[in-house]
């Protein structure tokens, strides 16, 4: 059996094991063949990818990655190397975002980054080119902006701007929905001046319908009406 290129799954994505003894040009062809064959099986999901078994230069990595993305529909979020731990994945993704907390003002555009883990504190503004998933809280005075939809696995107590570019189908979902403001496309909704203290904390979703923003508990029905 040809073991020049082997694809294996792991918790965060796939591992591509490369034979260290094959010459690089042959290896490139084998990678192309392998991924072309597996394209259907792999589908078009988002995942991390790491190379193992062979030391690759930065350029080689990029070249192989280009081959892979050309041959199949995978959406590679980040690359991890042989010698890195799994935490390295998140570190890489965050490095890409270039968020240094010492910055007086945090206002960056995250290209293609879809995940952010951590709390957004007052004065932080994070902009996503596509959909955003925040694992953490968005505090008062902070803002998440996205061209697509925003999902917050935590509390939304600040501002959320979904569908920045005018996408009226964008929505905002949060486990604890207590925003100062929500904007979807051109519509702005603000919190009531004397909010009633709701006892039960359930996930809620804000969406735009007939020019008004509605906030409802998350249900299968509501979700089925959304598109991403």
């Amino acid at each position: 059996m040809d073991n020049t290129v082997t694809i294996k799954g792991y918790s965060h994505g796939i591992t591509v094991i490369l034979n260290p003894d094959t010459d690089y040009e042959t290896l490139k062809q084998k990678v192309a063949v392998k991924f072309r064959e597996s394209a259907k099986f792999l589908g078009n999901t988002q995942m991390a990818l790491r190379f193992e078994g062979r030391k690759l230069s930065g350029e080689e990595q990029i070249e192989l990655l280009n081959i892979i993305t050309r041959e199949c529909n995978l959406n590679i979020v980040c690359i991890a190397c042989d010698d890195e731990t799994e935490d390295g994945l998140f570190v890489r993704a965050l490095e890409k975002a270039d968020l240094s907390p010492s910055d007086q003002t945090v206002s960056k555009t995250l290209q293609n980054a879809r995940f952010y883990k951590g709390n957004l504190r007052s004065g932080m503004e994070m902009t996503f080119e596509e959909n955003a998933l925040i694992i953490g809280d968005v505090n008062p005075g902070a803002s998440v902006n996205a061209n697509g939809s925003i999902i917050i696995l935590g509390s939304l107590k600040g501002n959320a701007v979904a569908g920045m570019g005018g996408n009226e189908n964008a929505f905002v979902l949060a486990l604890d929905m207590a925003p100062v403001q929500i904007r979807i496309a051109q519509t702005i909704a603000r919190s009531p001046d004397h909010p009633a203290r709701s006892e039960s904390k359930e996930a809620q979703i804000a969406f735009l319908e007939d020019g008004a923003i509605y906030i409802e508990p998350v249900s299968k029905k509501v979700l089925s009406e959304r598109t991403i």
Binding site: Q104, T105, G123, P140, G141, V180, Q181, I188, R190, S191, D193
Partner: peptide
């Protein structure tokens, strides 16, 4: 700038655009 407060003291923080 960067540490705004007057809006919350006035209770108008939710109206800022």
């Amino acid at each position: 700038i960067g540490l705004r407060n007057l809006d919350v003291v006035m209770g108008l923080e939710n109206r800022i655009v």
